[in-house]
């Protein structure tokens, strides 16, 4: 398994080196102010990709515990970004405290000890009932329904959904689960990258100016198909046949697209451009994992239902 993983990571490093090289040439040749700005942003994104690949690749190579801890930290940072932009009232204070310091760690603990039955219902059932109950103790009924919904959405998106990527470690599919995580991340992130590249190259027709002004139909189709192609070619990492890999990649790409789209809609609702600032050129953690929030649970359940023994 180590050889396959090293091979894939080496491939990514070569691609990134190529991207850095192309970026350097483009920066050298750019003359117009707006193209200089675009190329600078592109190169900032590439630099951040180096860091992200090192961090995620390093954690996955280091083993199961490191992977679970890394995703727990990512969830924590994403939840913090969610609540930095989402308004809350004094009456939500204890529900928020519990979200960050009890629900999130316990959910990832359940993942680490591989108690699937509890892992899958803890946030949708127990946190769903517990947190509004705690909030009532503060006696503030102002917008109570909306506030409870926000607390639950924050946990579902940033903790429950994202944790389905490391949850692949629980599955016994005949191939090492770490490879499935890498496969999911490659397809979902390449889909974003390809959509960006195709959109910049030939994008004309805006898909939805209200929600994501940069998304174009050409970018979506070209990027989606490119990512599905790569996902099909990488089928040896997975228990899927080439045809199955194409179908699963399609699920990942479509879900990932709507993940990014829904998270963008929330951002617009909150009048923000980015979720955060921690990843140069990309915005926040939630800007980078937005597609993963939708793609991870679907990929997990498709794999669990059809491909586990």
């Amino acid at each position: 398994m180590k050889e396959t993983l090293f091979g894939v990571l080496a491939g990514i490093v070569v691609l990134l080196a190529l991207a850095s090289l192309v970026g350097a040439v483009l920066e050298h040749r750019a003359t117009k102010p707006e193209s200089i700005a675009t190329v600078r942003n592109l190169n900032a994104r590439t630099r951040s990709w180096w860091v992200m690949v090192l961090v995620v690749g390093g954690a996955i190579l280091a083993g199961h515990t490191a992977t679970v801890v890394l995703f727990a930290i990512l969830s924590f940072m994403a939840l913090r970004e969610f609540w930095t932009l989402t308004p809350s009232r004094r009456g939500d204070h204890y529900a928020l405290f519990l979200s960050f310091f009890v629900v999130l760690p316990y959910h990832y603990y359940l993942l680490a000890i591989e108690w699937y039955g509890m892992f899958i219902i803890f946030i949708p059932v127990y946190a769903f009932l517990l947190l509004p109950a705690v909030a009532t103790l503060m006696g503030d009924t102002n917008e109570f329904l909306a506030r409870s919904a926000k607390v639950q959405w924050g946990l579902m998106l940033t903790v429950f959904a994202i944790s389905h990527a490391p949850a692949l470690l629980m599955l016994d599919t005949g191939v090492p689960s770490a490879l499935l995580i890498v496969y999911l991340i490659i397809v979902v992130q390449l889909s974003d990258v390809f959509q960006y590249v195709w959109g910049k190259l030939i994008g004309k027709h805006r898909f939805s100016p209200n929600i994501s002004p940069n998304k174009t139909i050409e970018g979506l189709v070209g990027g989606g198909l490119s990512a599905i192609l790569v996902g099909t070619m990488l089928h040896r990492m997975t228990p899927f046949s080439p045809l199955q890999a194409a179908a699963v990649s399609t699920v990942i790409v479509v879900a990932g697209f709507f993940g990014g789209f829904v998270l963008s809609a929330i951002k617009r609702d909150l009048k923000a451009k980015d979720w955060g600032y921690i990843i140069e050129g990309h915005g926040g953690v939630l800007d980078r994992v937005d597609s993963l929030t939708f793609a991870a649970p679907l990929f997990f359940h498709v794999t669990r239902y059809w491909f586990t023994s």
Binding site: F76, R80, E81, W83, T84, H93, Y94, L96, F97, F100, F101, G276
Partner: peptide, 9 residues
């Protein structure tokens, strides 16, 4: 009046 912090940025 609260001793419990919420880690918002």
């Amino acid at each position: 009046g609260s001793m419990l912090p919420v880690p918002i940025t």
